[in-house]
Amino acid sequence: MSATLPLPLPAAAAPAQPSRSYWTVVWRQLRRDPMAMASAAVLLLIVGAAVFAPWLAPADPYKASMIKRLLPIGSPGFLLGTDELGRDLLSRLMHGGRLSLLMGVVPVLAAFGIGTTIGLLAGYVGGRVNMAIMRVLDIFYAFPSVLLAVAISGALGPGMSNSLIALTLVFVPQVVRVAESVTTQVRQLDYIEAARMSGAGAFSIIRTHVLGNVLGPVFVYATGLLSVSMILASGLSFLGLGVKPPEPEWGLMLNTLRSAIYSNPWVAALPGVLIFVTSIAFNLLADSVRSAMDIRK
């Protein structure tokens, strides 16, 4: 055992295929997932229709007509019928998507940024700082998110920007919790210790080694929040705390069409169907991204 073992040191065999980055692999995985592609297509359609509504919509979404009130689906000139003021429902749904999607995406984006920063800090520093931050956020957890959104929004007063702030505040604690737990896990891994051994500062370690490994899982979690945010935003508008009439917005439309639920149920249900389809598509896509990202090991 004292001499060198009689084994050669072979140059390890070179793998045949070219190297791919993590995100390339995730993308290939996603492309092979029919559910992911279907939900992405649905979302693309809805987002496209909303974004290009001013050019694509067949009619003016604000133009009312008392004689054409509550026309059924398929009426000539009004593909999806009209609402309680005789406005073209298809145009209103397309225009309404702009606000609804905005109120779904903006709070989640804001909460993603704020929450990840706080969560990283709490998770990386640990100890008492972590304890202080997490216990304060636990207070928000004591309330159901709908109640919290309504309470904050009510306290700030109605209006779109106030409901955006309210929704952001609702999501921040949830994002922080995920970011904190992922950071705590990552921080204990050996490659962080190896980076500390190299004498790198905390900021450099967080930027190079922690952030990249925390953003992925938190991002996936945040995509799951998009549907919740849309539903909550619609709920706020439905309650009169968000967008004000005559602005088209799905939640608000659901409220104003409520009275027509007996006379023309299909038309009245349409904004709700859109909210439902969009949030389901967001959820399914988030699930697919989550499983596609699980390729390590």
Partner: peptide, 15 residues
């Protein structure tokens, strides 16, 4: 410097 037991956990998967 240190070499750890778990060769996977000691390498950043993103680099």
């Amino acid at each position: 410097q240190m070499v750890f037991q778990d060769s996977f956990a000691s390498l950043n998967p993103r680099l």
